[in-house]
Amino acid sequence: MSEKLQLHWSPKSPYVRKVMICAHELNVVPRLELVRSVAAMLKPNPSIMEYNPLSKIPTLVRPDGSTLFDSVVICEYLNDLAGGSLFPSEGEARWQSLRWHAFGDGLLDALILWRNEREREQPLKPLIDAFELKARTSLKLLDSEAEALTSAPLSIGSITVGCALGYFDYRFDNFGWREQAPRLAKWHTKLSERPSYQATEPLEG
């Protein structure tokens, strides 16, 4: 059994990106063996299902063969492994970080479903409209919290919000989220200067 941590991975997945940003910030990337894996919704991947019956990425296989999923569990494991501070341990900082994480993940879920729906031969307009409303309302709230995001230390919460905004750039480049949330855009621009973000830009192919 390899002593490395085997990560089922894709450069397109925002959930994988979350894990990889954490890995870069925690300096544990050399401990990861990246296994390129395709996790299509309509075609379960037997190679992934050997470790994760849900056929989803990221999935982490530890040296003893035990597995961890989903992304936030893997991130917390890496944080614990490295003795990091990406998961505040107590007080208001903890709850705010976890709230931003849940918010960012929920926004990502909505964006991915929105993208899937718009790719259908006959998209349902009420569903498209509902996803767009959720996205615009989420951006409005996050824009009002830009100052708090700016002053807070980097954590799983701000990383996940950043990944959701990065997914807007990747899959919804005509949506104009920056014009709708200028304060948030300013925060995201600064966040994007971090080497961990630059190293994990989603790639086609």
Rank of each mutant, 00 (worst) to 15 (best):
M1K: 11
S2L: 04
E3M: 12
L5W: 02
Q6M: 10
Q6V: 11
Q6H: 09
H8I: 05
H8D: 13
S10I: 05
S10M: 05
P11S: 11
P11L: 03
K12R: 14
S13A: 12
P14R: 00
P14K: 00
R17H: 11
I21T: 09
I21D: 01
C22V: 10
C22L: 02
E25H: 09
E25F: 02
L26M: 01
N27W: 04
N27I: 03
N27T: 10
V29Q: 11
P30Y: 03
R31T: 12
L32W: 14
L34F: 06
L34G: 05
S37P: 10
V38A: 15
V38L: 12
K43V: 09
P44N: 06
N45D: 15
S47F: 05
Y51L: 04
P53H: 04
L54Y: 14
S55R: 01
K56C: 02
T59Q: 00
P63Y: 02
P63R: 03
D64Q: 02
D64Y: 02
G65R: 07
G65V: 06
S66L: 03
F69T: 14
D70N: 06
C75R: 06
C75M: 13
Y77S: 13
N79R: 09
N79T: 11
D80W: 06
G83V: 02
G83Y: 02
G84L: 06
S85L: 04
L86H: 06
F87M: 12
F87E: 03
S89R: 14
E90F: 05
E90Q: 13
E90P: 05
G91W: 04
A93I: 03
A93T: 07
R94F: 03
S97K: 00
S97L: 01
L98E: 14
L98C: 09
L98H: 12
W100Q: 13
W100T: 08
H101T: 11
A102F: 08
F103L: 08
G104H: 07
G106T: 00
L107P: 01
L108E: 05
A110Y: 06
L111C: 08
L111M: 15
I112D: 14
I112N: 09
W114R: 00
E119W: 01
R120I: 04
Q122P: 05
P123A: 08
P123K: 08
P126F: 07
P126T: 12
L127V: 15
A130I: 05
F131P: 00
K134I: 09
A135I: 10
R136P: 09
S138V: 04
L139N: 10
L142W: 13
S144W: 04
E147I: 03
E147K: 08
T150W: 05
S151T: 12
A152D: 13
A152Y: 04
I156N: 12
I156H: 14
G157K: 00
S158L: 03
V161W: 03
G162E: 02
L165Q: 14
G166K: 06
F168Q: 13
D169I: 04
Y170A: 06
R171Y: 06
N174M: 07
G176H: 11
W177V: 04
E179L: 08
Q180L: 13
Q180T: 06
P182F: 00
R183D: 14
R183H: 15
R183K: 15
L184S: 01
K186D: 15
T189S: 13
K190M: 10
L191N: 11
E193T: 11
P195V: 03
Y197F: 14
Q198N: 07
A199R: 13
T200K: 01
T200R: 01
P202I: 03
G205C: 05
